[in-house]
Protein backbone atom coordinates (compact mmCIF):
# COMPACT_ATOMS: atom_id res chain seq x y z
CA UNK A 1 0.00 0.00 0.00
CA UNK A 2 2.71 2.42 1.03
CA UNK A 3 4.62 1.37 -2.04
CA UNK A 4 1.68 2.42 -4.11
CA UNK A 5 1.46 5.77 -2.41
CA UNK A 6 5.13 6.30 -2.98
CA UNK A 7 4.68 5.48 -6.60
CA UNK A 8 1.79 7.90 -6.89
CA UNK A 9 3.87 10.62 -5.29
CA UNK A 10 6.75 9.81 -7.62
CA UNK A 11 4.44 10.22 -10.60
CA UNK A 12 3.36 13.59 -9.37
CA UNK A 13 6.99 14.61 -9.00
CA UNK A 14 7.73 13.42 -12.51
CA UNK A 15 4.82 15.39 -13.84
CA UNK A 16 6.18 18.45 -12.08
CA UNK A 17 9.60 17.77 -13.51
CA UNK A 18 8.25 17.36 -17.02
CA UNK A 19 6.30 20.58 -16.65
CA UNK A 20 9.41 22.38 -15.45
CA UNK A 21 11.41 21.04 -18.40
CA UNK A 22 8.71 22.17 -20.79
CA UNK A 23 8.66 25.60 -19.20
CA UNK A 24 12.44 25.85 -19.47
CA UNK A 25 12.30 24.85 -23.11
CA UNK A 26 9.61 27.39 -23.72
CA UNK A 27 11.49 30.19 -21.98
CA UNK A 28 14.74 29.08 -23.58
CA UNK A 29 13.17 29.04 -27.02
CA UNK A 30 12.08 32.61 -26.78
CA UNK A 31 14.79 33.75 -24.37
CA UNK A 32 12.43 36.49 -23.66
CA UNK A 33 10.82 37.69 -20.49
CA UNK A 34 7.46 39.28 -20.04
CA UNK A 35 6.70 41.46 -17.08
CA UNK A 36 4.76 39.15 -14.79
CA UNK A 37 4.51 41.21 -11.63
CA UNK A 38 1.53 41.25 -9.30
CA UNK A 39 -1.12 41.68 -11.92
CA UNK A 40 -2.38 45.15 -11.14
CA UNK A 41 -6.12 44.80 -11.35
CA UNK A 42 -7.32 46.77 -14.30
CA UNK A 43 -8.72 49.90 -12.73
CA UNK A 44 -12.01 51.02 -14.17
CA UNK A 45 -12.44 54.76 -14.31
CA UNK A 46 -15.52 56.10 -12.59
CA UNK A 47 -17.71 56.57 -15.66
CA UNK A 48 -19.50 53.32 -16.62
CA UNK A 49 -20.14 54.62 -20.14
CA UNK A 50 -16.41 55.11 -20.71
CA UNK A 51 -15.73 51.69 -19.18
CA UNK A 52 -18.23 50.06 -21.57
CA UNK A 53 -16.61 51.76 -24.56
CA UNK A 54 -13.13 50.81 -23.36
CA UNK A 55 -14.12 47.16 -22.94
CA UNK A 56 -15.75 47.05 -26.35
CA UNK A 57 -12.65 48.53 -27.97
CA UNK A 58 -10.37 46.33 -25.86
CA UNK A 59 -12.04 43.23 -27.27
CA UNK A 60 -11.03 44.30 -30.81
CA UNK A 61 -7.37 44.70 -29.89
CA UNK A 62 -4.93 41.83 -29.78
CA UNK A 63 -2.64 41.35 -26.82
CA UNK A 64 1.03 41.29 -27.86
CA UNK A 65 2.04 38.94 -25.07
CA UNK A 66 -0.59 36.19 -25.29
CA UNK A 67 -1.39 36.57 -28.91
CA UNK A 68 -4.69 34.75 -28.99
CA UNK A 69 -6.37 36.95 -26.43
CA UNK A 70 -7.64 40.47 -26.66
CA UNK A 71 -6.21 43.10 -24.33
CA UNK A 72 -9.56 43.16 -22.52
CA UNK A 73 -9.37 39.42 -21.77
CA UNK A 74 -5.66 38.99 -21.17
CA UNK A 75 -4.15 39.04 -17.71
CA UNK A 76 -0.72 39.96 -19.02
CA UNK A 77 0.66 43.06 -17.43
CA UNK A 78 1.16 44.81 -20.74
CA UNK A 79 -2.49 44.16 -21.60
CA UNK A 80 -3.52 45.89 -18.37
CA UNK A 81 -1.23 48.81 -19.15
CA UNK A 82 -2.71 49.10 -22.63
CA UNK A 83 -6.29 48.81 -21.32
CA UNK A 84 -5.52 51.63 -18.90
CA UNK A 85 -4.21 53.68 -21.82
CA UNK A 86 -7.44 53.02 -23.71
CA UNK A 87 -9.53 54.08 -20.68
CA UNK A 88 -7.50 57.21 -20.06
CA UNK A 89 -7.62 58.33 -23.65
CA UNK A 90 -11.35 57.70 -24.02
CA UNK A 91 -11.92 59.56 -20.75
CA UNK A 92 -9.83 62.43 -22.14
CA UNK A 93 -12.34 62.71 -24.99
CA UNK A 94 -10.56 60.82 -27.76
CA UNK A 95 -12.58 58.81 -30.25
CA UNK A 96 -12.32 55.03 -30.74
CA UNK A 97 -10.61 55.70 -34.06
CA UNK A 98 -7.96 57.89 -32.45
CA UNK A 99 -7.20 55.32 -29.75
CA UNK A 100 -6.94 52.59 -32.37
CA UNK A 101 -4.55 54.76 -34.41
CA UNK A 102 -2.48 55.40 -31.27
CA UNK A 103 -1.94 51.66 -30.76
CA UNK A 104 -1.39 50.87 -34.45
CA UNK A 105 1.31 53.56 -34.63
CA UNK A 106 3.21 51.72 -31.89
CA UNK A 107 2.46 48.05 -32.40
CA UNK A 108 1.35 47.87 -36.04
CA UNK A 109 -1.72 46.35 -37.70
CA UNK A 110 -0.90 43.29 -35.66
CA UNK A 111 -2.94 44.64 -32.73
CA UNK A 112 -6.11 44.81 -34.83
CA UNK A 113 -8.22 41.69 -34.96
CA UNK A 114 -9.74 43.20 -38.08
CA UNK A 115 -6.79 44.43 -40.15
CA UNK A 116 -7.35 47.09 -42.81
CA UNK A 117 -7.42 46.13 -46.50
CA UNK A 118 -4.12 47.10 -48.10
CA UNK A 119 -1.40 45.64 -50.29
CA UNK A 120 0.17 43.55 -47.52
CA UNK A 121 -3.16 42.15 -46.33
CA UNK A 122 -4.84 41.44 -49.68
CA UNK A 123 -4.07 37.72 -49.45
CA UNK A 124 -5.71 37.67 -46.04
CA UNK A 125 -8.93 39.25 -47.23
CA UNK A 126 -9.21 37.82 -50.74
CA UNK A 127 -7.50 34.45 -50.24
CA UNK A 128 -10.50 32.57 -48.77
CA UNK A 129 -12.80 33.73 -51.57
CA UNK A 130 -10.25 32.72 -54.21
CA UNK A 131 -10.01 29.27 -52.63
CA UNK A 132 -13.79 28.83 -52.49
CA UNK A 133 -14.07 29.97 -56.10
CA UNK A 134 -11.37 27.50 -57.18
CA UNK A 135 -13.22 24.73 -55.32
CA UNK A 136 -16.54 25.58 -56.97
CA UNK A 137 -14.87 25.68 -60.38
CA UNK A 138 -13.24 22.27 -59.87
CA UNK A 139 -16.55 20.79 -58.68
CA UNK A 140 -18.41 22.26 -61.65
CA UNK A 141 -15.88 20.85 -64.11
CA UNK A 142 -15.99 17.42 -62.51
CA UNK A 143 -19.79 17.37 -62.58
CA UNK A 144 -19.91 18.44 -66.18
CA UNK A 145 -17.43 15.76 -67.21
CA UNK A 146 -19.48 13.13 -65.44
CA UNK A 147 -22.63 14.34 -67.15
CA UNK A 148 -20.94 14.20 -70.55
CA UNK A 149 -19.73 10.66 -70.00
CA UNK A 150 -23.34 9.71 -69.21
CA UNK A 151 -24.58 6.72 -67.26
CA UNK A 152 -22.92 3.48 -68.42
CA UNK A 153 -25.21 1.04 -70.23
CA UNK A 154 -25.00 -2.68 -69.51
CA UNK A 155 -24.45 -5.34 -72.10
CA UNK A 156 -26.97 -8.23 -72.11
CA UNK A 157 -24.49 -10.45 -70.32
CA UNK A 158 -23.81 -7.88 -67.60
CA UNK A 159 -27.54 -7.28 -67.19
CA UNK A 160 -28.09 -10.99 -66.59
CA UNK A 161 -25.34 -11.07 -63.93
CA UNK A 162 -26.77 -8.07 -62.21
CA UNK A 163 -30.19 -9.64 -62.23
CA UNK A 164 -28.78 -12.82 -60.68
CA UNK A 165 -26.97 -10.88 -57.98
CA UNK A 166 -30.12 -8.97 -57.13
CA UNK A 167 -32.10 -12.17 -56.85
CA UNK A 168 -29.54 -13.47 -54.39
CA UNK A 169 -28.47 -16.46 -56.44
CA UNK A 170 -24.90 -16.23 -57.53
CA UNK A 171 -25.17 -18.54 -60.47
CA UNK A 172 -24.61 -15.79 -62.98
CA UNK A 173 -21.26 -15.01 -61.46
CA UNK A 174 -19.12 -17.53 -63.22
CA UNK A 175 -20.90 -17.64 -66.53
Amino acid sequence: MSGNRFFAKGTRAWQGFALAVLLCLFVGRFGFAQATGEVPQARPVGDPAIEARALKLGHELRCLVCQNQSIAESNAELAHDLMNQVREQLAAGKSEEEVRAYLVARYGDFVLYQPPLKASTVALWVGPFVLVLAGVLALWRALRRRAREGTPTLSADEAARAEALLRGTNEGERS
Binding site: F32, Q34, L64, V65, D81, R106, G108
Partner: peptide, 15 residues
Protein backbone atom coordinates in the same frame (compact mmCIF):
# COMPACT_ATOMS: atom_id res chain seq x y z
CA UNK B 1 8.95 53.25 -13.91
CA UNK B 2 5.44 53.00 -15.37
CA UNK B 3 6.47 51.71 -18.81
CA UNK B 4 4.85 54.61 -20.67
CA UNK B 5 7.90 55.40 -22.78
CA UNK B 6 8.26 51.71 -23.60
CA UNK B 7 4.69 51.73 -24.94
CA UNK B 8 5.65 54.67 -27.17
CA UNK B 9 8.39 52.46 -28.59
CA UNK B 10 6.01 49.52 -29.05
CA UNK B 11 7.91 47.42 -26.52
CA UNK B 12 6.09 44.25 -25.50
CA UNK B 13 8.79 42.37 -23.62
CA UNK B 14 12.35 42.74 -22.44
CA UNK B 15 14.99 42.80 -23.71
Amino acid sequence: LDGRVAIDYGVYGVP
